[in-house]
Nucleic acid binder design. Structure first.
Lengths: 166, 166
DNA sequence: CAAATAAATGTTATAGTATTACATTATCTC
DNA sequence: GAGATAATGTAATACTATAACATTTATTTG
């Protein structure tokens, strides 16, 4: 898995995500419509979490009938299918790196370049399961959002991770 | 520490929280003004996270000049002082159980009765530190929001945790 | 104490995020 | 093709948060 914080072939990364999404929708017997594909692609065009209204602006270019419900309904669909995640602290959405795999989300979010990276770590889940049990709480899902500086932004003079990126 | 999910003397719990907040503000050399105390008290009157506009409605009863900036500025102050937390997924605020103690937040949130409880668990922090290091990410803070059912709401017929509460 | 400064609050307007409700169109099933 | 279901179009509105500037209150300093 490539990191959102480093350079990589993102176009390829996005293309394969779309194909995988289409396959997963077929398996689930749900429709990966033109609109859904379009929005999903837009989300994957950036490793930065994107807001609903930014997406709205973008699809308006190709579809003038687009309004907020258009976007939110489609986002809800993608969320339900586990194809994207919502980053609560940013009111923004990001493609899911392991769609289909059972996982609730942990994200490391750079305060400077605003890129976000989904990470999987069994110990976080275990710790949350532990604390839930201690409190006799029946855990169903969780979200962890970690803030700080990504490797590039810890040395901001050498690179600038925040230029020319969506 | 009492649990937000069980019955306890919440008035006492709230009163001591206000006193502790006043003391901490004195120590920090910041002012615990009438407005700040009033809002802090309102937040502590419920174990449910409260939204800014709910608080606005409430202080309007006693102060007709209250507007959104009044509330948000005061909330910002209380957040900065570590006296309250913001639950991102709910756009809502809740009193901090261990003000003064260094800690970033973990919350268990009941999907049925909507109560939330701050919990502290070293293993969550450790796991997040681990995963941050693995990704060469310089962690500054984190928030974990865990969703599920509290002990009472796992047996909804016997008790009803969602009646008569703020 | 009074003037100067800083901190807090008041006020108006607006930006940003999300949902409700209902109409229409497309797709699927038989 | 008719009926049912799913998806999308459309208009209005509700909810959440901030910007910008005026006024008041508290603190500091001469």
């Amino acid at each position: 898995m490539d990191s959102a914080f480093s350079h990589h072939n993102h176009h390829q990364c996005q293309t394969s995500a779309v194909e995988q999404a289409r396959r997963l929708c077929e398996e689930q017997g749900v429709r990966f419509t033109k609109l859904r594909e379009q929005l999903f692609t837009l989300i994957w065009e950036s490793h930065k979490p994107v807001t609903a209204y930014k997406l709205l602006d973008q699809i308006k270019d190709s579809d003038f009938s687009a309004t907020p419900p258009t976007v939110y309904r489609t986002l809800d669909f993608l969320l339900e299918q586990g194809l994207i995640h919502r980053i609560n602290s940013l009111n923004a959405f990001i493609g899911c790196c392991q769609p289909g795999a059972r996982h609730t989300g942990t994200f490391i979010i750079c305060e400077r370049c605003e890129h976000a990276q989904e990470v999987d770590h069994a110990n976080i889940l275990h710790a949350i399961q532990q604390v839930s049990e201690q409190h006799h709480f029946q855990m169903k899902s969780y979200v962890t959002e970690v803030y700080g500086l990504c490797p590039q932004c810890q040395h901001p003079d050498e690179h600038d991770n925040n230029k020319g990126l969506a």
